[in-house]
């Protein structure tokens, strides 16, 4: 028990610090890519906000939300997207390559959690430069939507919950690469679910909403935290999210163990 606590608070942070340093030196080596990724993200943020802005020039509300509330939700999703781009996204593509090349062997053999090493080893430093911007957007649209300043006390917790939900769903989906010959298709499937998560739950109706909220809970990523910030009495979806995170963690562990049984190293 003591060892586990020591690992969580000392060993893993120290490993992650080293990985961060490696990513930093890599990022400063390829400077053109560094700048281009920042520009790419800015274009993505602009197109996301502007798309909804264009729609709101013709309608006063989408579902129960007005323009500011919808843009507040989008900016919350942009924060999650920024964290996803920084800490996760590259790892899904390298996982696919590691499976094909047999490089996963070295990850499995190391005396730390292989899931941690597989999905958190690559960090895209450059996207951190856009982090202040996405937080700025959140506070700006939050102010316009009437979010109370004291509500932001909850923000770190809500961001962590949203990010964990997204990360665990995507890791779970990508683990299906163990069962596929070519992993890129699974990566595209994962990206489609990520795309769906960028929209609020009320745009889907009936069975689709139920499936996307409870079975493959992509709608649980951003909607519950945004709804909670906009209206404190709307906390029930957050309770579902709090239940879903440990279940997803269990699911990921289960799929990883089953996947490893299936794994045939290409290098051995």
């Amino acid at each position: 028990m003591l060892k586990a606590i020591k690992n969580i608070f000392i060993l893993y942070p120290s490993i992650y610090r080293q990985l961060f340093n490696c990513a930093l030196s890599k990022a400063t080596t390829f400077r053109t890519s560094f700048v281009l990724i920042i520009i790419m993200d800015l274009i993505f943020y602009a197109s996301t906000i502007l798309s909804v802005d264009v729609i709101f020039q013709h309608v006063p509300e989408i579902g129960p939300w007005n323009r500011s509330e919808f843009q507040f939700f989008l900016s919350f999703m942009l924060i999650l997207d920024n964290l996803h781009m920084t800490f996760l996204s590259e790892n899904f593509w390298s996982f696919s390559l590691d499976l094909k090349s047999g490089a996963l062997d070295y990850t499995i053999l190391r005396p730390v959690s292989p899931i941690f090493l597989t999905f958190f080893k690559s960090i895209r430093i450059c996207t951190l430069f856009n982090t202040p911007l996405v937080f700025g957007l959140l506070f700006y649209f939050g102010h316009k939507a009437g979010v109370q300043p004291h509500s932001y006390i909850w923000l770190p917790f809500l961001i962590i919950m949203g990010f964990l939900t997204l990360a665990l769903i995507e890791i779970g989906i990508s683990l299906f690469m163990f069962w596929s010959v070519e992993g890129n298709g699974i990566n595209f499937l994962r990206m489609q679910f990520q795309n769906i998560s960028r929209w609020p739950d009320f745009i889907f109706d009936g069975l689709a909403r139920k499936i996307l909220f409870f079975a493959i809970p992509v709608l649980m990523v951003g909607t519950p935290p945004a709804r909670f910030l906009l209206n404190k009495s709307d906390y029930i979806p957050m309770v579902f999210q709090a239940v879903a995170v440990p279940l997803l963690l269990f699911g990921v562990k289960f799929l990883w163990d089953k996947g490893l049984l299936r794994y045939e190293s290409a290098s051995s």
Partner: peptide, 28 residues
């Protein structure tokens, strides 16, 4: 399967999301 997920799947999902979005807008 890879061809389907990479080439055919994304436009179908994109269409479904757009259809749902516009349905919610018109409904409102």
């Amino acid at each position: 399967l890879n061809f389907f997920l990479q080439v055919i799947g994304p436009p179908i999902v994109f269409f479904c999301v757009k259809a749902s979005l516009w349905k919610a807008i018109f409904n409102g």
